[in-house]
Nucleic acid binder design. Structure first.
Lengths: 114, 114
DNA sequence: TCTTCATACCTAGCCTAACTAGGTATGAAG
DNA sequence: CTTCATACCTAGTTAGGCTAGGTATGAAGA
């Protein structure tokens, strides 16, 4: 499934995952893929720049960790990031409520076609 | 509230509203604002180009109607538009499920219609 | 050995679509 | 005779997710 529909909600899921436990970018990608059973299959080209942007905004902090010869950039959510996450959650629920208010009256799953 | 978060879901709500009953652009805007109690307060600069795009794609059809000296462009959802709407609904539900799976079942989604 | 795969990171440039900020025009209300 | 609500339009900007490339290590397997 194409999930360019994540547009505008990428920060939400990134902050959401990292607020539970700090982790590195690649792990965030695989976590999202696993938790959503493949629905959220984000590319590195989406996630890494987003992580950089969130750090730039002060919502994430990172530090390099050497791991078996490789290196990982471990991210954690800052205090400002926690506040931002709460705001993102509120906005998300508002959007879901709004869309459901709009679509709620139409035949949802009852459409006979297909 | 800023709802640029509608990004990627504008087609869904436009097709959703117009599939219930044909209408003109300005009415769609006021309908969305009323139904969502102001949450979805879209600008004309968002809606009109979107309607044109959807018509260009064959998902909407329109015709001018004279109304008390003024003129309105009345839109209706085409057959292809109905199919597209169903696909949009599926994608929307998939996104909501995915985000909730990531965030750990957020509440406030008690509308059974979806 | 040598190739391939999984891990783990990065970025320049593209593309889409929502938004900004302006514009036109009518009719009613004040 | 001005202002407001209705009703439409679009050029140009912006944001941000995606494409498509790149670097590098370690382990598996041919």
């Amino acid at each position: 499934m194409k999930v360019d529909r994540i547009k505008g909600h990428l920060d939400l899921v990134l902050l959401g995952v990292l607020s539970e436990s700090p982790g590195h970018g690649y792990a965030v990608i695989t976590t999202l893929r696993a938790r959503t059973e493949g629905t959220l299959d984000l590319t590195e080209g989406s996630v890494y720049p987003a992580l950089h942007r969130l750090e730039e905004l002060g919502l994430l902090a990172s530090e390099w960790q050497p791991v078996a010869g490789r290196r990982r950039r471990m991210y954690r959510v800052t205090t400002a990031g926690q506040r931002a996450l709460q705001a993102e959650r509120r906005d998300w629920r508002a959007l879901v409520s709004a869309v459901e208010a709009v679509l709620g009256r139409a035949p949802a799953t009852a459409v006979g076609a297909l």
